[in-house]
Design a protein around this nucleic acid. Structure first.
Lengths: 196, 196
DNA sequence: TTATCCATGTAAGAAGTTACATGATTGA
DNA sequence: TCAATCATGTAACTTCTTACATGGATAA
């Protein structure tokens, strides 16, 4: 699964332009997929060449011609093929968790700000996704939005309930510079010969 | 943050070879970061060139020479710099949720198998991460493992509690081929002229 | 007057994966 | 006997992002 699959999926819901596909991707797909124009437009060109979508160009005044894409029967078949292919595990990449892992290297104030902010971000996700559940037209969409809401709620709750665990061990009255230089005090003093 | 940052972080915990860095990445970092040898080895070369790590080569019999890396003071400083730089939002990519979004296109049996499997996968994550919490040496590590456990538990619970929402609308007694071809019945019958 | 919406597309580059190349040792 | 562990590294490739190029209309 890739951006081409995403485009096919969105077009399976109705005809759309590249621009509209981008907007849709930023809506009900945004918590588990993302796509930029730089990947969507080439994907649509290729899908057209392969006969999986059709393109209708409409001239516009003082604007680039509008191109409305429609999925073909071959496209629907290919999409279901993508959907039934072996699924890869969720790929998660979190700079936030990376930072929390090394909380002991950071000043307490900085850590507190990060946690406050992250809780707020997760709560926003929850309310947005919660609203999406009631508004969504299909069961699948309600399901994935509900999933996102449940997960982000759990994340926010965990942060609020457990932040003291990292905040207690954070650096107090010391800045990041001292943490970096003074780390050898926390470990057996290994000689760092060869370092100028 | 990238693989270089990950290498610096792991080396900030103690000296290691590229191979050991990979193993560590597969352990307590695996639920929010991943790295292959093909990205780790070049990262270590570059870090060495930049003076952020030191490399000690030891010849071995009938094996490639072992290279043990040690972070330098400049490396620790750079790492804390990475840690305090503006954090990017969590990047999640889930082919599973993509599939559930379009559950109405899939046969009920297939959907049931997917859900069974995903619940099992999430439960495994939970028990692995739960164990990691008690064994972890630092507060940061306990925190991120606990976070992972809480989130995966919420995910598994959601699936069990809500899977009926998608399973009820799944295709019954029809295969994927029919779904792909017959989709126009669910939408206003738009002529697909031009499609051979 | 400033930002956002509309609307397309390309080119350069970042970042990482997969596969290849090599091969002994050890445990099941 | 089969798979995993140890151990490094490169090259080709995929995939996607960012920045650029263009620019009127509209709402705050």
């Amino acid at each position: 699964m890739n951006i081409r699959t995403l485009c096919l999926g969105i077009l399976s819901l109705g005809d759309a332009t590249g621009y509209e596909i981008k907007k849709t991707a930023e809506g009900p797909f945004s918590h588990f997929y993302r796509a930029s124009f730089g990947s969507i437009y080439p994907a649509l060109s290729r899908l057209t060449k392969e006969g999986l979508v059709l393109c209708t160009t409409t001239a516009q005044e003082r604007r680039p011609p509008k191109k409305v894409y429609r999925i073909t029967t071959a496209g629907r078949l290919a999409f279901v093929g993508d959907l039934t292919a072996p699924i890869e595990g969720d790929a998660v990449r979190s700079d936030f968790l990376m930072t929390m892992f090394f909380a002991h290297l950071l000043p307490a104030q900085h850590l507190a700000r990060l946690l406050d902010h992250r809780v707020a971000v997760y709560r926003e996700h929850v309310s947005r996704l919660h609203a999406a559940v009631t508004e969504a037209p299909t069961a699948g969409q309600r399901f994935v939005s509900g999933f996102g809401a449940a997960v982000y709620r759990a994340a926010a709750d965990f942060l609020e309930d457990n932040r003291h665990l990292v905040e207690r061990e954070a650096l107090i009255g010391a800045d990041a510079r001292a943490a970096a230089g003074g780390a050898s005090a926390a470990r057996p003093a290994l000689a760092e010969a060869g370092e100028s």
